[in-house]
């Protein structure tokens, strides 16, 4: 829930999604759902030498369960808000 809300605030921002199969895709975050499925637009593969055929796809849906990391824009993290929200989540659960 927390990360769902959190990622929704990053909609429109540029993020890099790293998959469990080591593929890293950079793109504009279009949307995210409660399963943390991620839709990116204007995507490009970070390691283009390794994945030349995926050079560019227009839009891309990534299944939440295959995501290893999401790299955020540094200024996209409101640390205080995240601290507070994390504490609330911990208390609620």
């Amino acid at each position: 829930m927390l990360f769902f809300s959190y990622f929704k605030d990053l909609v429109g921002r540029e993020v890099t999604v790293e998959l469990k199969n080591d593929l890293a895709i950079r793109g504009t975050l279009h949307s995210v759902d409660q399963y943390l499925n991620i839709k990116l637009e204007n995507t490009r593969v970070v390691d283009q030498d390794k994945y030349p055929h995926m050079l560019s796809v227009r839009n891309c849906f990534i299944r939440g369960s295959v995501v290893r990391y999401v790299q955020l824009p540094p200024d996209g993290v409101d640390v205080d808000l995240l601290h507070d929200a994390t504490r609330r989540e911990a208390r609620g659960g």
């Binding site: 998959l19 593929l23 055929h53 050079l55 891309c60 990534i62 369960s65």
Partner: peptide
């Protein structure tokens, strides 16, 4: 549930 990713590919180089 086996589809990790799907995308529209329109780049002729891809």
């Amino acid at each position: 549930f086996s589809l990790s990713l799907h995308a529209v590919s329109t780049d002729p180089e891809a």
